[in-house]
Amino acid sequence: MSDVKKLMYVNRRAPYGTIYAWESLEVVLIGAAFDQDVSLAFLDDGVYQLTKGQNTEDTGMKNFSATYAALGDYEVTKIYVEKDSLDERGLLLDDLQHLVWEDEDEDWAEKDSIRLVSRAELADLMADQDIMFNF
């Protein structure tokens, strides 16, 4: 595959309750091998997927939240979080995991992966994609 397409994975559901968040993450990790221009968007209840301190012990569900920290190693460096969705849920950026990636062009400088965007900015980003995966 020679041509690089812009892929966006759109995550709008809470991390548990349905399997979509976990299966989305599986697609992202496998899709990373395809060397495409990848970004992730978190909006609506999807913003809960990135929250710190998740504990699933009482529900018997697998806690996969630590996996998000590995995204940088998979060269997934653009994680858009819709600020309106955070505001509506009383969440702050500080409630989310601090996700980073290392920029090999700048001596492996550590950079933030999460970018807060407004609803309108996210709409523009979506309009710019070739492919959207919705979860």
Binding site: D3, K5, L7, V27, I30, I131
Partner: peptide, 10 residues
């Protein structure tokens, strides 16, 4: 595998 989905999309 899931790679088949990505390949299909691309």
């Amino acid at each position: 595998g899931l790679g088949q989905l990505i390949e299909g999309a691309v």
